[in-house]
């Protein structure tokens, strides 16, 4: 009984002391607007559309990102240029739905859609959260600087015929039986 009382009392006093010395220890708070936190490069924040090193749009309007998106916040439509390249006629992301999961980035075969470390995207009007292609497209390559889809892919465009891509063998004439 006496031991219980003394133990309880000492335990309470120890608690009080441990909490009291917190007064002189470093605080965990980050005073955010004054003190910007370090954002990691692979942080999944605002989505952008990047360009290839030549300055052309990387997006080929394959719709894989729209399919992968679990909340269906990406909408786009395919268009085709005269030189054979595919491009999105419009590309719309509704950021009020987006959950920044990064599945679109995983799905993208051309590294066009990428997530950036920016997270300050609050708006007063809900309609302002819907971003069009002009808002999403940046003048740069994003995280992958040397990658150019049309330079490595077999797709024929103007000025690059089949078999002329990087590391690509010339096409095989299947009607010829010669080895």
């Amino acid at each position: 009984m006496i031991k219980l009382i003394v133990d309880t009392l000492l335990s309470q006093i120890r608690t009080l002391w441990l909490v009291f010395i917190k007064l002189f220890q470093k605080k965990d708070t980050v005073e955010y607007p004054d003190q910007q936190p370090y954002m990691f490069p692979r942080w999944r924040g605002r989505i952008i559309l990047s360009r290839d090193p030549d300055g052309e749009e990387r997006c080929v309007a394959c719709n894989l990102c729209a399919v992968a998106c679990p909340v269906d916040c990406i909408a786009l439509q395919k268009g085709e240029m005269e030189d054979g390249r595919w491009y999105p006629e419009f590309f719309r992301i509704n950021f009020s739905r987006c959950i920044m999961c990064g599945f679109c980035e995983e799905a993208c075969p051309t590294n066009a859609i990428q997530l950036t470390p920016d997270f300050e995207m609050a708006e007063y009007v809900r309609q302002d959260m819907v971003w069009e292609k002009e808002d999403l497209l940046i003048e740069g390559t994003g995280k992958y600087h040397d990658y150019n889809f049309y330079r490595v892919a077999g797709k024929k465009i103007e000025g690059k015929d089949k078999g002329e891509a990087l590391n690509e063998a010339p096409p095989v004439d299947v009607r010829s039986l010669l080895p």
Binding site: V19, F20, K22, L23, Q25, K27, D28, T29, E31
Partner: peptide, 10 residues
């Protein structure tokens, strides 16, 4: 303020 300090806040 004091509660904040004691909870490692500001």
């Amino acid at each position: 303020r004091l509660l904040g300090f004691w909870q490692e806040r500001l």
